[in-house]
Nucleic acid binder design. Structure first.
Length: 592
RNA sequence: CGGGGUGUAGCUCAGCCUGGCUAGAGCGCGUGCCUUGGGAGCACGAGGUCCGCGGUUCAAGUCCGCGCACCCCGACCA
């Protein structure tokens, strides 16, 4: 590709509103451009990267025997109503109507559609298991899109669905997909952490997330520094026997006047105490009763854990509910509750003395409360995991990492096959619901993840399998006939050897070309300049890319650094680049 | 969905408070000269629905109302 003819318009100015490296550099490098909030164009060079990632995913899906399909983005409402998600996913759906007034939705995900397809054709155990996937655009009306491709309203996703006669069969496929995902991320050189996860509204029991550690992400996970157990902070449990008890000296129980002060922050200031000296009391309503949940003031209740413990959906109590239990919103507490309300507490409250709680009376709190004077019916693990908490598996210490979710795999069971009537006839002639799994990868998000993992403010560093070109060829002075002619020979030879090259043949100053090479993030740079008169051509390697090369193969690395200046011999230059390309190709694509 | 902010040249922004004649700058773009190993220099030039609609006024980019879009913080979120 000749830069002078290409659709490539880089910018040296940092775009306003681009808060993280990937958003900023992808815009500056002209990989993407914004059409609307959370809606992006993939421009030619960005689309090249997308297709590279796409290809790796296709190869790994093929390898586990999945077949690629392409489903519509426009879905009639019927199927979504059958599974109930027309209502439960309403907050992220783009809904629309046709001219007749029939309702449609732009696909947020495709369980309904794929299950419908399979239900129509797959009727026998002989055709199971069956794996189908697609790489396609998804629509989610996020309240707040941000970070460029990281949280978009229209984005590209790989979604695989598997169909089975039994859970045992599903388990095997789940493991296959797990391994395939590991291979995909390894081939793209993305350092992922596999994390036990909450399955959320997609449903099902078991799930794993593939996360990359970065501040640009919006998720967190906890990892034990001793045993390595990784788990989403949404569900991370703590080891119950090792709570960090906080003992304060014992004091008299006192009722104190705290006018209009109900939040922990306000109380901290007003009473000159620390947030861990308070116990938050939150009143929940379950189907049949009220439950008051206690947690130390510097912690937050994890509603997923709480709901699981109570075995019921949760609703926060409202003003009316507080009247019913004769307490006051904002001043509720576990001492002197008039009505019988079940009180359960997070472990973090165990052992606390001289703590502060609401007095169930407007503008009053109790101080000097001891944990064993509160009628707590049980201590349970109910709070959001913190850095340093004891690991559920081994009692070691959790560390909390900020992360970006790239993939998520679920065992769905029959959640979709039953309502959508996807049944098969088994060997024994019995009709049974198909057992399903589903597996997603955020394809466009992967592009941001690669940039976040390896790049800085002014330069991207694509990995071997994601780079839009392998070689960036710079001709310092295109008006110099010797330089131009030599560059052209190199250019043609690179193409003849299937080495993807972007030739910066513009009539621009040298600095612009170097900066663009760095910004665009191509692994190799060949520089044809005035040193051609002393028979030398310079090779450069993207710094961050060099590190990845060094990590995977020191031999290739040694070979490289010996040859940063090479003699003007087209064949030698081409064979050097080709050699490195072939070695890396083997390393990343054959022996993974 | 709550709070805050912004909308003027392709991009980044000034001008608005205190209404007034031909709406500016830097970058980018075009032409010419010069230059070619780290985003050069000089000269000339093109480029505007001042977000939209309505109102006030002799007069609106500027003041008022409504709407739309985008950005930020929070809540929410496979």
């Amino acid at each position: 590709m000749r830069y002078s003819r290409y659709f490539l318009f880089t910018s040296k100015e940092k775009p306003v509103g681009a808060l993280n490296v990937s958003h900023s550099t992808l815009l500056r490098g002209n990989f993407i451009s914004q059409l609307s909030a959370g809606v992006y164009n993939f421009l030619p060079i960005g689309f090249r990267v997308l297709k590279k990632v796409w290809k790796i995913i296709e190869e790994e899906m093929d390898r586990i025997g999945a077949f690629e399909v392409l489903m519509p983005a426009l879905h009639p409402s019927e199927l979504w109503k059958k599974t109930g998600r027309w209502e439960t996913m309403d907050n992220v759906m783009f809904k629309l109507q046709d001219k007749k007034g029939s309702e449609f939705v732009l696909g947020t995900t495709h369980e309904e559609i794929i299950t419908d397809i399979v239900s129509k054709f797959v009727k026998s155990y002989k055709n199971l298991p069956m794996l189908l996937y697609q790489i396609q655009v998804k629509f989610r009306d996020e309240m707040r899109p941000k970070g460029g491709l990281i949280r978009a309203r229209e984005f590209i996703m790989k979604d695989l669905y598997s169909f089975h006669t039994s859970w045992e069969c599903l388990d095997r496929t789940y493991q296959d997909v797990y391994n395939a995902y590991q291979r995909i991320f390894r081939r793209l050189s993305i350092p992922v952490e596999v994390v036990e996860a909450f399955s959320g509204p997609i449903g099902g029991d078991v799930s794993h997330e593939f996360m990359v550690i970065t501040n640009a992400g919006e998720d967190k996970f906890a990892k034990c520094s001793r045993c390595g157990y990784s788990v989403s902070t949404e569900i991370a449990q703590v080891f119950k026997k090792q709570i960090n008890y906080e003992y304060n000296p014992k004091r008299e129980l006192q009722k104190v006047y705290t006018p209009n002060i109900s939040s922990v922050e306000e109380l901290v200031n007003f009473l000159k105490r620390e947030s861990k000296d308070f116990v938050k009391s939150i009143l929940y309503k379950t189907e049949e009763k009220y439950v008051l949940v206690l947690v130390r003031g510097d912690r937050e209740i994890n509603e997923i854990k709480l709901s699981k413990h109570l075995g019921s959906d949760l609703v926060l109590a409202n003003e009316e509910d507080f009247e019913k239990i004769e307490s006051v919103m904002g001043f509720v507490g576990p001492i002197g509750l008039k009505k019988n309300v079940k009180i359960i507490s997070d472990y973090s409250v165990y052992g606390l003395r001289n703590i502060i709680v609401g007095a169930n009376e407007r503008d009053y709190h109790y101080t000097g409360v001891d944990y064993d004077n509160i009628p707590i019916s049980e201590f349970v693990d109910l709070s959001v995991v913190h850095d340093g908490d004891p690991c559920f598996k081994c009692g070691g210490e959790y560390r909390i990492y900020p992360a970006l979710e790239l993939g998520h795999i679920f065992k769905l069971g029959t959640k979709y096959s039953e309502p959508l009537n996807a049944y098969f006839t088994d060997k024994d002639g019995k009709i049974k619901p198909i057992v399903m799994g589903c597996y997603g990868i955020g394809v466009s998000r992967i592009i941001s993840a690669i940039v976040e993992s390896y790049s800085d403010e002014n330069s991207i560093s694509w990995t071997f399998n994601s780079a839009p070109f392998f070689v960036y060829l710079i001709t310092i002075n295109i008006d110099d006939e010797t330089q131009r002619a030599f560059s052209e020979r190199i250019y043609n030879q690179l193409i003849a050897n299937n080495l993807e090259v972007l030739w910066d043949d513009r009539k621009e100053s040298a600095g612009i070309k170097f900066k663009d090479w760095e910004l665009i993030g191509v692994p190799f740079c060949i520089i044809i300049g005035s040193k051609i008169s002393t028979n030398k051509v310079e090779l450069k390697i993207n710094k961050s890319f060099a590190k990845t090369v060094k990590n995977v193969d020191t031999e290739i690395w040694e070979h490289l650094i010996k040859n940063l200046f090479v003699d003007v011999n087209v064949d030698d230059i081409i064979s050097l680049i080709k050699y490195i390309y072939v070695q890396l190709d083997k390393r990343y694509n054959e022996y993974v």
